[in-house]
Amino acid sequence: MVRLTRVQQQARTRAAVLAAAREEFAEHGFGPAKVDRIAERAELTRGAVYSNFPGKRALYLAVLIEQVERSAEDEPRATVSPISRVDALGVFARTWLERLPLVGDPAAGGRLRARSLDGVFEDDRGPATLAQLARLEALLLAVALERGAPIRQVRLAELVLTTLAGAGHLAATSPGFGDPFDVAHACRHLATIDLDDTWAPPHLPYVTPAHTCRDSWAPPAEVVDLISGEPVDLGNGLLVVLGANRLGAAEEAVRVARSGEQVTLAVVTGDPEETGRLVRLRLTDAVGCLRRVFAAETWRHLRLVLDDGALAASIGLQDVGDETESAVGVRDGVIVARAHGRGAGHAVGARKAATP
């Protein structure tokens, strides 16, 4: 008889819970699903479920993460980006719309396939984090559309994502309504609209300047970029640590960085079980869709890290949370500038930009 180690037994229990939860959510949806039924499906106790997941919401997010990450393993990555913004948005929209449920799909199963979060976050924390995630997703799409050109495309990216999110909501709640081909065509057309997009946040002139320093540091050995899947070289560039409710500040660092300078965005949270899972779900899903349309070279100067706190701790941040906003400038493995609080990334980037 083969005896399982404690770690092996925990992994087996967790897998059983996730499989049972997937069936429960696909059959009933998030709201009507019951933890007791999930435990019964897994042939485990209710306590065994809660020993792996703090609640039904965390379990639902874990099921969606597993679904997204499993599908990403089999999806091809683009090696050449579309030539024009019109073509890029058409391909991106068609790729995004593949997740929509079909007319004959069961309602609950269709919402699971569409990664629907309707009714999952009804407290004050969820909507605030979702809004910040949407801003970061729009920035990632905008960077791909801009391709280094000085014409900001964030408003266009936000409009496209709004259109797709609306189509996704209708498909999940009203299966069969709307034609995905029409939605994709509409997204292509959005690229032809002049949105007069400018970048002039009113608070930036009043941001506290970064202070110079010369601090040695030892970053974690394995820091992986979510976009490329490759290790991140942290020897030079701008590192910005952002809490889940401060993700909109990512653009401040991207805009102020010198041409060719690497910007690393490290996302942290004070609630890894739920907010952390939400961040992982949305960003993994967004990046997976983008990588199918745009070549990895598109984001060669931008790195995105889901930090468990180790990277933040390495620059001196011991107590991180959803409101964290801090940045350092690194040169030849040495921290040469620091800033903390609102506008930190801009402050450090502006100081570096002014330094020969």
Rank of each mutant, 00 (worst) to 15 (best):
L4Q: 09
V7A: 15
Q8C: 00
R14M: 08
A15T: 09
A15V: 00
L18F: 06
A21P: 02
R22Y: 01
R22M: 05
E24A: 10
F25I: 04
E27G: 05
P32K: 09
I38W: 08
I38Q: 06
A39W: 05
L44Q: 09
R46P: 01
A48G: 01
A48F: 02
P54D: 02
A58D: 13
L59Y: 01
L59G: 02
Y60A: 04
V63P: 06
R70F: 03
E73P: 00
P82T: 12
I83P: 00
G90C: 13
V91Y: 07
V91F: 09
F92R: 04
L97I: 10
L97M: 04
E98T: 14
E98L: 11
V103G: 08
G104W: 15
G104E: 14
G110R: 10
S116Y: 04
G126N: 09
L130W: 02
A131V: 11
L133G: 07
L141F: 07
E146L: 02
P150R: 10
I151A: 12
V154W: 01
R155D: 12
L161N: 13
T163D: 06
A165F: 02
G168M: 15
S174N: 00
S174D: 00
G176T: 05
G176D: 03
D179Y: 10
F181I: 14
V183I: 15
V183P: 05
D194T: 04
D194L: 08
D196Q: 15
D197K: 06
T198E: 14
A200E: 12
P205N: 12
Y206E: 07
V207N: 05
V207G: 05
P220V: 06
A221S: 12
V224T: 15
S228M: 05
G229I: 02
P231R: 13
G235L: 05
L238D: 00
L238C: 01
V240P: 04
V241H: 12
V241E: 12
L242R: 02
A244P: 06
R246V: 07
G248F: 10
A249H: 13
A250G: 05
Q262A: 13
Q262G: 01
T264M: 02
L265H: 05
G270E: 07
G270Y: 02
D271G: 02
D271A: 09
E274S: 06
G276W: 08
D285G: 10
A286I: 01
V287R: 01
C289P: 00
C289H: 15
C289N: 11
R291G: 10
V293G: 08
A296V: 15
A296P: 00
E297C: 03
T298R: 08
R303H: 11
V305E: 09
L311M: 08
Q318R: 14
D319Q: 12
E323F: 00
S326P: 00
A327S: 11
V328F: 04
V328C: 04
V330F: 07
G333E: 09
V334C: 11
I335L: 13
V336R: 09
A337S: 14
G341Q: 03
R342D: 08
R342V: 10
R342Q: 14
G345P: 11
H346V: 08
G349F: 10
A353T: 11
T355L: 12
